[in-house]
């Protein structure tokens, strides 16, 4: 341990107090959500708030899992999100590689264009996109979701990955090139393996965004068997009354896979950022 990390006990305590306090604030709403999902409507929003539901009920979960075809929607969401994420990370990384390692006419302009994609409100594109999807025959299909989800995630992914790629020393590329490796090999065998943290980041972001997407799914999906989870959850919000227990039970079910994906990838998130050959 260096001198730097030999902190006085007092400040160590303070550090933990601050962190625990912060973590509690972060966590409380979730606890409340989970607890509400076990309450019947009559016990929702009481003063003082009940953290431990009394009486507790599994009715909300039973209803969520039985009234709609929840398992099928869950699978649809899994298929759509996984496919979109894999395709998007792959083609975005290729695009990012081109931006990071080549100089070619129109490069700056194209990159600016990709950036604009980050800034346009998605809602406004829905009508033109819908007309387009219709012409492409993508209405009412999971493919229609996937293709547009991939397109929508390209901007951010390219932006993130291009930055990371550019920071990998070009000398490594040169060395490989001297050995006779062509561009694809350098991309696939050198840059990609070195970029695990950035790829993990983009994977999490993309999975998250597609898993939660509602507006586009609502627009193009008609067939109930092709619904994704956000659509199903929205159906629990009624015209005349919202059954909070139901909505939150459905939300808990929907949030779990995201947490799992995050837990799987999170260690790559920060660790390894500076490890390996990059550190040079």
């Amino acid at each position: 341990m260096s001198a730097l990390h030999r902190t006085r006990p007092a400040s160590g305590v303070l550090r933990h107090v601050l962190l625990i306090l912060g973590a509690l604030i972060m966590l409380t709403p979730f606890v409340y959500m989970v607890s509400t999902s076990f309450k019947s409507q009559a016990y929702v929003l009481t003063i003082p708030p009940q953290l431990v539901p009394d009486p507790a009920t599994f009715d909300n979960y039973v209803q969520v899992l039985t009234t709609q075809n929840f398992a099928a929607y869950f699978m649809n969401s899994v298929v759509v999100s996984l496919t979109s994420t894999v395709v998007s990370v792959l083609i975005s990384s290729m695009m990012a590689y081109a931006f990071a390692r080549f100089r070619f006419p129109g490069r700056e302009l194209l990159f600016r264009l990709v950036l604009v994609g980050l800034m346009v409100p998605a809602m406004m594109l829905i009508i033109p996109q819908f007309i387009l999807a219709k012409q492409l025959g993508l209405i009412d299909s999971l493919q229609g979701l996937i293709v547009f989800y991939v397109a929508a995630s390209i901007s951010l992914n390219t932006f993130l990955l291009r930055g990371f790629f550019a920071s990998i020393p070009g000398e490594l590329d040169d060395a490989m090139q001297v050995d006779g490796a062509n561009a694809w090999t350098r991309y696939w065998r050198l840059v990609m393996p070195l970029s695990t943290p950035a790829l993990a980041t983009t994977t999490i972001f993309t999975f998250l965004a597609t898993w939660d997407e509602f507006a586009w799914a609502l627009t193009i999906i008609n067939d109930p068997s092709k619904r994704t989870l956000p659509l199903a959850i929205q159906l629990f919000q009624g015209q005349n009354a919202t059954q909070w227990g139901l909505v939150f039970a459905a939300s808990v079910v929907a949030v779990l896979p995201v947490i799992v994906v995050f837990l799987i990838f999170q260690k790559y998130f920060v660790q390894g950022l500076t490890s390996g050959a990059v550190k040079g």
């Binding site: 290729m94 081109a98 080549f102 293709v147």
Partner: peptide, 30 residues
């Protein structure tokens, strides 16, 4: 860090193509 690559002029465009086609078609056009 960039170095001039002697690889064919088309290479960067091949890398760009899949994402660019999707992006221009489904985002820029709308």
């Amino acid at each position: 860090t960039r170095r001039r690559r002697r690889a064919g002029r088309a290479t960067p465009y091949l890398f760009l193509a899949p994402a660019l086609v999707l992006f221009v078609g489904l985002i820029v056009y709308p």
